[in-house]
Deep mutational scan, measured.
Amino acid sequence: KYSDMIVAAIQAEKNRAGSSRQSIQKYIKSHYKVGENADSQIKLSIKRLVTTGVLKQTKGVGASGSFRLA
């Protein structure tokens, strides 16, 4: 599940300011076997996790910027 992968990526990075979408994508692609549409799936999952309150956006708008666990 992409949401689990995103949470794992943010936990692994341990950046106080949060993790960027690009760094999350890079982590997921190197640690998991994902399909061609992974980028758009990650983007959608990040937006969903922010609206449900699992992630907090520290910089930027939408799916860009930095995110950390709430």
Rank of each mutant, 00 (worst) to 15 (best):
K14I: 05
K29R: 07
L69Q: 05
R21I: 15
Y27M: 01
R21H: 12
E36V: 12
I46E: 02
G65R: 11
G60A: 08
L49Y: 00
L55S: 01
G60H: 07
A12H: 09
G35Q: 05
T51P: 00
T52E: 13
Y2I: 10
G53I: 03
Q41F: 10
A8P: 01
F67Q: 04
T58Q: 07
V61M: 09
S20V: 03
S23D: 10
L44Y: 07
Q11L: 14
I46Y: 01
R68Q: 14
F67K: 03
T52W: 07
G35E: 07
V50G: 01
K1Q: 10
I6A: 01
K47L: 13
I6R: 00
E36H: 11
K56L: 14
G53N: 03
G53R: 02
I6E: 00
A8M: 06
I24G: 02
Q41G: 05
Q57S: 07
Q25V: 15
K33I: 11
A70D: 04
S40Q: 12
A70Q: 05
F67S: 04
I6Y: 00
A17M: 13
Y27D: 01
Q25G: 09
K59A: 09
G65P: 15
A63C: 14
I24T: 00
S23G: 05
S19K: 04
Q22D: 10
S30Q: 11
A17C: 15
M5H: 02
V54M: 06
L49T: 01
V34F: 03
A38N: 03
S64M: 10
Q22A: 12
A9V: 02
I24Q: 00
K33E: 12
L55T: 04
G62F: 07
L55F: 01
Q41W: 13
D4R: 11
T58S: 09
D4G: 07
S66D: 07
K1I: 10
A38S: 06
Q25D: 06
A8R: 07
V54E: 03
S66V: 12
S19F: 03
L55V: 05
G60F: 06
N37R: 07
Y32E: 00
G60D: 05
A17P: 03
G62A: 06
T58H: 07
V34L: 06
G18H: 04
D4P: 05
N15L: 06
R48Q: 11
S23H: 07
K14D: 11
G18A: 04
K59Q: 08
S3Q: 11
Q25F: 08
L69F: 05
Q57H: 11
Y27L: 00
T58A: 08
R16K: 12
K26W: 15
I24M: 01
E13V: 07
T52A: 13
K33L: 10
G18I: 02
Q57E: 12
S30K: 10
E13G: 10
D4S: 08
Y27H: 03
A12W: 07
K1V: 10
K26R: 12
V61W: 11
L69V: 08
Y2K: 01
I24S: 00
I10Y: 00
I46D: 01
G65K: 13
D4V: 11
A9L: 05
V7M: 08
I28A: 00
S40I: 12
H31A: 04
Q22C: 14
T51E: 14
L55Q: 02
Q22M: 09
I42M: 02
E36G: 11
K56N: 06
Y27R: 01
Y27V: 00
F67I: 07
S19A: 10
A38E: 05
F67A: 04
K43P: 03
R48D: 09
S30E: 13
L55E: 00
Y2H: 02
H31K: 04
S66T: 12
E13R: 07
A38C: 09
R68V: 14
S23C: 10
G62L: 05
I24R: 00
Q11R: 14
H31P: 00
S3C: 15
D4H: 12
Q57N: 06
K43I: 14
K29L: 10
S20A: 03
R48T: 08
G53Y: 02
A70V: 08
A12Q: 06
R21S: 09
G60I: 07
I24C: 03
S30V: 08
L55A: 01
Q11H: 13
S3K: 11
G53T: 01
K59M: 09
S40R: 15
Q22F: 07
G65W: 14
S64R: 10
A8E: 10
N37C: 08
V50H: 00
S30M: 11
K59I: 08
G18K: 02
D4L: 11
K1S: 14
G53W: 03
N37A: 06
K14Y: 08
S3Y: 13
R16A: 13
L55G: 01
S20I: 03
L69M: 08
M5S: 00
S64V: 08
A9T: 01
V54S: 02
T51H: 12
R68H: 10
Q11F: 07
Y27G: 01
Q22Y: 09
Y27I: 02
R68C: 13
Q25A: 13
D39V: 07
T51A: 14
T51K: 14
R68D: 06
K59L: 09
K59T: 09
Q57Y: 15
S45P: 01
N37V: 05
S64N: 14
K56Y: 12
K14C: 15
G35L: 15
I6S: 02
E36I: 12
Y2V: 05
A12Y: 07
N15K: 09
L44P: 01
R68F: 14
F67C: 05
S20G: 03
E13A: 09
L49S: 00
Q25R: 06
Q22T: 09
Q11I: 12
I6C: 02
I10P: 01
Y32P: 02
A63R: 12
N15E: 05
I28D: 00
K47V: 10
S23K: 05
K29D: 04
R16D: 10
S30N: 09
K59N: 09
G35Y: 05
A63S: 12
S23M: 07
I28N: 01
S30C: 14
V54Y: 04
D4K: 09
S40W: 13
K59D: 08
K33M: 11
I46N: 00
K1D: 13
A12V: 05
T51N: 11
V34P: 03
S30I: 09
H31R: 04
S45N: 13
T51C: 14
K14A: 14
V50K: 01
E13S: 12
S30D: 12
K47F: 09
R48L: 13
N15V: 05
S30P: 00
V61Y: 12
G35H: 06
S23N: 07
E13W: 05
I10N: 00
N15M: 05
S3R: 10
K56V: 15
T52N: 10
T51W: 10
N15I: 04
A70Y: 09
I46P: 02
S66K: 14
K29F: 09
G62I: 05
I6L: 01
I46V: 03
L44I: 12
Q11K: 13
N37G: 08
I24P: 01
D4F: 12
I28F: 00
Q25M: 15
V34N: 03
R16H: 10
K29I: 07
G53S: 01
I46W: 03
K14W: 06
D39E: 08
A17Y: 13
I28T: 00
S66R: 15
G65F: 13
S23T: 08
V7T: 04
A9N: 00
L55H: 02
K47E: 13
H31G: 01
I46G: 01
G18C: 15
Y32C: 06
